[in-house]
């Protein structure tokens, strides 16, 4: 999208215009509907800033959701934050900051006609983006392995041998099969569980939202009864996973839901940013940019900085909860 904004100055060549009367003396970098370079540059800057404002409001919705969930479940956030790897998050923050720095330097190189420096800075920025995503990949896979995921699957034991055996055993148990509430079987990471018959979730929805909020669907036991598992069972459970932690607060899955939403959307923006940086690099190699024509680098850079700026808030909000 920011490509579209940044690219308007090339419009000139696209169409045959019948305005020879005023085209003479027109800067080739200035599109036909602008009077001057300054007007075009200012328009592009205002345009990209308005686009960044929409990005902020786009993420803003998620920040509000985060705030509401955290106010509702403060214990969940301080508990679940410890499952995130602060060191990896911190390194990622530094990687993004450094790539922002190289991006800012790239803009400077473009402004001052340093083509070599521009290409080097853009490549470094691109490497930073890749580094960020690689670290993110390791974080995500680690969490998937421990089943620290969103939704109901959070409550399925991690995919280790023991849990797998247990899941297999449960699969044959008729009670468990009917008790599971699955809207979409694919939401279970474990294929064995996906094979279980699905129960329409709407049945739960309508019955369970009573005035006191305590009515249960399908005759599921009320929390009072379910709250006291047999003491012996706790010792049988496999140690080390979130499900065996007696301090696991209710609704912990919500932390991971919003975590994946926010970091996932941010990750999508990083990928889009990589596309923009790659395109800029290609054009820089082609020699498009100079002190007379650097608007695309400037606006693309602004987009990349907003990605950094959002991460600056995501990092303490998820990784640094005491």
């Amino acid at each position: 999208m920011s490509q579209t904004i940044a690219n308007t100055h090339t419009t000139h060549a696209d169409q045959a215009h019948g305005h020879d009367d005023h085209a003479h003396g027109h800067d080739p970098h200035v599109a036909h509907h602008f009077d001057s370079m300054a007007q075009q540059f200012d328009s592009a800057k205002l345009g990209i800033w308005l686009f960044l404002a929409t990005e902020i409001l786009f993420f803003g919705g998620l920040f509000v959701a985060y705030a509401i969930l955290r106010m509702r479940n403060p214990e969940v956030f301080s508990y679940a934050s410890h499952y995130l790897d602060t060191i990896m998050g911190g390194i990622n923050t530094c990687v993004l900051i450094l790539s922002s720095l190289t991006m800012a330097l790239a803009v400077r190189c473009a402004q001052t006609n340093r083509r070599g420096g521009l290409i080097v800075c853009l490549v470094l920025t691109f490497m930073g983006a890749i580094g960020f995503l690689v670290i993110k990949y390791f974080e995500y896979t680690h969490k998937f392995h421990d089943n620290l995921v969103w939704g109901s699957s959070f409550y399925v034991p991690p995919h280790d041998a023991e849990g797998h055996a247990e899941a297999m055993a449960l699969k044959t148990a008729p009670v468990a099969a009917t008790a599971i509430v699955v809207k979409d079987p694919t939401l279970f990471a474990i294929p064995d569980l996906a094979a279980k018959p699905a129960v329409d979730v709407s049945a739960v929805k309508s019955a369970s939202v009573g005035p006191s909020g305590m009515a249960r669907a399908n005759g599921t036991p009320a929390p009072e009864q379910a709250a006291a598992p047999a003491p012996g069972k706790l010792e049988e459970a496999h140690p080390g996973t979130h499900l065996e932690d007696t301090k696991l607060p209710p609704n912990t899955h919500l932390f991971f839901a919003i975590y994946y939403c926010m970091t996932g959307l941010h990750g999508i923006h990083v990928v889009a940013g990589m596309g923009i940086i790659a395109w800029l690099t290609w054009r820089a190699v082609r020699g498009d940019f100079s002190s007379k024509n650097f608007t695309a680098v400037d606006t693309g850079g602004l987009y990349w900085h907003i990605v950094d700026l959002i991460w600056i808030f995501l990092f303490p909000l998820f990784y640094l909860i005491h």
Binding site: T54, F58, L62, W150, S152, S208, V209, L254, C261
Partner: peptide, 26 residues
């Protein structure tokens, strides 16, 4: 943009059941 993110959350909610808007998921 707020509509955008709301609809996106709704799509995610409907496909993978994240539970942010779903009372039976807290």
């Amino acid at each position: 943009p707020v509509l955008g993110i709301t609809l996106l959350l709704l799509i995610v909610e409907r496909t993978v059941n994240i539970g942010i808007f779903n009372p039976s998921m807290g």
